Amino acid sequence: MTEREPFRVQLKVRHYELDTLGHVNHAVYHSYAEVARLELIEKAGGLNGGLRDRGVAAVLLESHISFRKELRAGDVIDVTCETKFGSGKTFVMNSDIYKADGTLSAEISCTLGLMDLERRKLVADPRGVCEQAGMDLALLGGSAA
């Protein structure tokens, strides 16, 4: 059995994203992962209707990054994103950032929840809410953690 390829977006490193050392500022890596998460949620059907119609939205609770290789201006990168649901109120969305030659530049793991926007509390079953909202769980990579 072959593993499914994770969702990915391609981005280009911009000059204004660099720090004084000439490589991408640490905070920008988190922005790259955010772009991939939002693109994935949108493509899976969670932004236009979906979650919003149910009065919920994804909320970032924790983020961890491991830097592997620096990125510089002009680099074209692929940012992956894959979701892992557990049994509780939270789920994980992992992203890897690859340089054009396939070199792993960073690994980012984010813990999220779905917040009920009226109650301002996390929903008990985020995977179930995503499914009820008509989101494509296969595209999300919505496996159990």
Rank of each mutant, 00 (worst) to 15 (best):
D125T: 13
D96P: 05
A100F: 08
E131L: 00
C81E: 12
A138L: 12
L71M: 07
L140M: 14
Q132H: 04
V76D: 09
S95D: 09
C130T: 01
T80F: 05
C81G: 11
C110A: 13
E131P: 02
R119Q: 15
E82I: 09
D136W: 00
S109P: 02
L122I: 08
I97A: 00
S105R: 04
S105Y: 03
C81V: 09
V79L: 07
L117S: 11
S95N: 15
D116E: 13
K69V: 12
F91C: 07
V92H: 11
E82R: 15
F85N: 01
V92Y: 08
A133C: 04
V92S: 10
R119H: 11
F85W: 02
F91Q: 08
D125K: 15
E118S: 14
S105G: 04
F85C: 01
K99W: 10
K84C: 03
G134P: 05
M93S: 09
L114Y: 00
E118G: 12
Y98C: 06
R119F: 08
L140F: 06
E107A: 14
L71F: 01
G74S: 11
G128Y: 04
F91S: 06
I108L: 09
A124R: 15
T103P: 06
P126G: 09
M93G: 06
F91V: 07
E82V: 12
Y98L: 15
L114H: 06
S95K: 06
A133F: 01
S87E: 13
D78N: 09
R120C: 14
V129H: 01
T103A: 11
R68W: 03
L112C: 12
E70W: 06
